[in-house]
Design a protein around this nucleic acid. Structure first.
Lengths: 292, 292
DNA sequence: TCGACTGGTGAGATTAATTCATCAGTCTGA
DNA sequence: TCAGACTGATGAATTAATCTCACCAGTCGA
């Protein structure tokens, strides 16, 4: 047996709190500000505390109101998304995708034209984002994650492994300091990715270099930035060999030592569990898997 | 501007779906089954699909209804908890705590009597659980987590570092196979914790043992079980030195080599961000920190 | 200082929710 | 096997929740 507050009053509160105005909430809900006032009062009486400060001409949320708003918002987001999913057209041809930045710029973007040629009716709405996202409370249909593939409560499809090789600008390789064997890295700047500092350590270990005290180090927040920094000649970075193949072919980046580090990390296509796929989602999934 | 379904109808649906019966839902909501029927119908008309199968005498959820229920439930849980937090008595002296199993049995339990002597009015409701929990949708007040301290959106307080030492039963140490230097571990069974397999590797590396091919290995799902297995003489495990100090003092476990591995992992007291602490929570927090 | 805002309040009007009466089907047990 | 006790469905009537209206006070800017 549940103990829920009056839900209609809650809806009115959420709108009023979001707008920080009873009048604006009234407009959104197609009622008068008086109705909003009544409903907020009902909720406040139920809770036994005030959610708004009513001094001055404008209303402001109390600390309690602020707290409550964030929870109520979360909950309403979820209800809204669940309702949207349920009533969504299975024939929908718009797919909202969230993609790991490196994969987006270096893999997906260059191949977008091919997808559009194959599926001219499908419209992709792409968003770059790193971390995990909440499929319950966002309208994102699918995502490309980077990681070890161990995520709970979502449908996970393996795309491709990430194999790291050192990359740097050709100028650096032709420069004064030699870069002929892994030990020579000691004289160069190593470019790290903040949250994956162990990668250089592992690569050096695999390359038979026991310990190295590099000349300097540079820290970047993403693999994409690390690769860009290497391209600018700022040092040597570890980058995925296939994602940077274009830069390597065109000579913008060179691989001083072709020693690949198997990271146990990979790119994965993920989406909400048990979600019936729309034709747009099916098309994107099939194309993505077939391009691998 | 939001697009929410009729919320009162949603509440009725949730109850009916939970009970898998309109009559039972009516009883819970103090209305007739007729009212339930009307409301469910309203919701179904709004969504444009049926949520219940009405064949036979009983109703069953359709696939869509099942999907919808889980989301609606989640959302209502959150509203319920937010409301409960808001109306909760600040003077409450009941604290619901979720504790990492190893910490619970080896640290908290032995000291519980001391807490109760100091705060006879405070009532602890303890729950053992490993993973992370959702403070938004559960009624747990505080938790003791084991990990690296990097968790988002929660209040984190450091408790104590975990320093690992090898432990085994005294019988094993006095047995036929020597255990005098780290290299001797090669002749014994190493007990691993499933999700922290790297620990033995790190310890051996720190002890100056390059590579070791142990006689066998045993995998346990938690540190608690690994320590118990070591106590039974099944092999050598890595255990936290302070958590196992009682067993070590009493001679149930011995430390063959006093080489401690700093794991960068620790125990932390955590709770919901911005949550105003009840007097019970304050008492527990203060006591816990002072016992460290 | 006046108008144009803000939100608050109580009474009445409107709309939504519930009950009631009735119907049909299904399962149970005498 | 057939009455009786359940299940839920439905439309009209009733009740309860919600909203509007009219009026209030206060604040802000011209």
């Amino acid at each position: 047996m549940r103990h829920l507050p009056p839900l209609n009053a809650l809806r009115v509160f959420e709108s009023a709190a979001r707008h920080r105005s009873f009048a604006a909430a009234g407009k959104e809900l197609f009622v008068t500000s008086s109705a909003v006032s009544h409903q907020v009062k009902t909720l406040e009486e139920y809770l036994g505390l005030s959610l708004f400060d009513r001094s001055r001409r404008t209303v402001t949320l109390t600390a309690e109101g602020e707290q409550y708003l964030s929870s109520v918002r979360h909950a309403f987001d979820e209800i809204e998304m669940a309702t949207q999913r349920l009533t969504a057209n299975q024939e929908s041809n718009v797919v909202k995708i969230s993609v790991a930045p490196n994969f987006l710029t270096r893999w997906l973007m260059p191949r977008m034209a091919r997808f559009q040629a194959l599926y001219p009716d499908i419209e992709l709405e792409i968003n770059a984002s790193m971390g995990l996202l909440d499929f319950d409370r966002t309208s994102t249909d699918m995502a490309v994650y980077f990681g070890n593939g161990e995520w709970d409560d979502i449908e996970v499809h393996f795309l491709r492994k990430v194999m790291l090789v050192p990359v740097c600008s050709p100028q650096l390789l032709d420069g004064e300091l030699p870069l002929e064997k892994p030990e020579d890295l000691a004289k160069h700047t190593l470019i790290y990715v903040s949250k994956r500092k162990w990668e250089w350590e592992n690569w050096l270990q695999q390359s038979g270099v026991d310990f190295i005290s590099a000349r300097g180090s540079l820290q970047m927040s993403s693999g994409q930035l690390a690769t860009a920094a290497a391209q600018e000649g700022l040092g040597v970075a570890l980058a995925d060999s296939t994602l940077t193949s274009r830069e390597i072919k065109s000579g913008k980046l060179v691989v001083p030592f072709d020693i690949q580090l198997d990271t146990n990390r990979a790119f994965y296509l993920v989406y909400r569990k048990q979600r019936p796929l729309t034709i747009g989602m099916k098309a994107f999934k099939e194309w993505l898997m077939s391009e691998m």
